[in-house]
């Protein structure tokens, strides 16, 4: 069974890629690692006339750190991100999520930016990037703009990208002070599987041990990966106690809006949001102690 037919181009710059994308107005697709696009084409969901590869754009696979931030280029693979020392040091939830996305082979091909742009509700790297307040640097023929990841997802397979726009890189601010974060994935059928629930949680602690800032993001339980804002609000200023954790977990579950599909039922997913949120918070707490 062959893939549908298309024309292929390999622009040398992002600007050129954006121009091509704009020129074909919805009939072109960007390919980075290709693992999602080829799957979509194989299933007859994606039928682009033109496929624009980012493979020849110099530096697109870079993972670059400055004193204040880390930039993950559009072609940086899941494996490269997972193994990057700075990612492991400052963004452990992302390192963990990237390391459990797909299989070894897929992680050697697929990119983090691609995982986000595919906008699957179950994308492993989405909830970690949400808790790190990731920003997407978006390139268009006219220039660049920045979109907060929380504003980026618009529905299953839908993003804030408009005509001629593509993601150049993801920017993460390096944390200041003490923060703890982790990613919890539940895939009961197999260790190698799509998450039926994914939860990431970040806690920044003050010197007294109170929570200065909290981020909780939930995946696979709504049309988009999203933050559990009410649950986050409950945590700020609190000391973590078992009661607080339980209450926060219950609220996070309420903020989920899951569906039943062939992988899991709605109520199981909702219930697991509470379990995974609690585990994520407890792990943060353990690491803090």
């Amino acid at each position: 069974m062959s893939l549908p037919k298309f024309t292929y181009c390999e622009p040398k710059t992002l600007e050129e890629a954006a121009l091509k994308l704009a020129e074909y107005d919805g009939r072109a697709r960007i390919v980075a690692g290709g693992t999602d696009l080829l799957l979509g084409m194989r299933r007859g969901i994606a039928k682009p006339e033109v496929v624009i590869s980012l493979a020849r754009i110099a530096g697109a696979n870079a993972i670059v750190a400055s004193a204040t931030e880390l930039r993950i280029g559009a072609m940086a693979t899941l494996a490269e991100v997972a193994q990057h020392p700075l990612v492991q040091q400052h963004f452990p939830a992302l390192a963990c999520a990237a390391a459990v996305t797909g299989t070894v082979q897929i992680r050697n091909m697929g990119t983090v930016v691609g995982n986000i742009c595919n906008a699957s509700p179950s994308a492993d790297t989405a909830t970690p990037l949400l808790i790190y307040d990731a920003k997407m640097i978006v390139v268009a023929p006219g220039g660049e703009r920045t979109v907060a990841l929380a504003e980026f997802f618009r529905g299953p397979g839908k993003t804030a990208l408009t005509q001629g726009e593509l993601v150049k890189e993801i920017v993460l601010k390096l944390p200041s002070g003490t923060t703890r974060s982790n990613y919890q994935k539940l895939s009961p059928r197999s260790k190698v599987d799509i998450a039926i629930v994914g939860v990431s949680a970040l806690l920044a602690f003050s010197e007294t041990g109170a929570i200065r800032r909290a981020r909780i993001a939930i995946g696979s339980v709504a049309p988009v990966p999203k933050r559990a804002l009410e649950a986050e609000n409950m945590l700020e200023g609190c000391q973590l106690t078992p009661e607080v954790i339980a209450a926060v977990a219950a609220v996070a579950a309420k903020e989920a809006a899951p569906i039943t599909d062939m992988r899991a039922s709605e109520d199981y997913r909702r219930s697991m949001v509470a379990v995974l949120t609690r585990r994520a918070l407890q792990q943060n707490q353990r690491e803090q102690q």
């Binding site: 059928r189 197999s190 260790k191 190698v192 599987d193 799509i194 062939m262 992988r263």
Partner: peptide, 16 residues
């Protein structure tokens, strides 16, 4: 049949 790939017809992997 809705699950027509190994993604959703889950056979145990080495880790399992």
């Amino acid at each position: 049949t809705l699950n027509t790939t190994f993604l959703d017809y889950k056979v145990p992997a080495a880790e399992d």
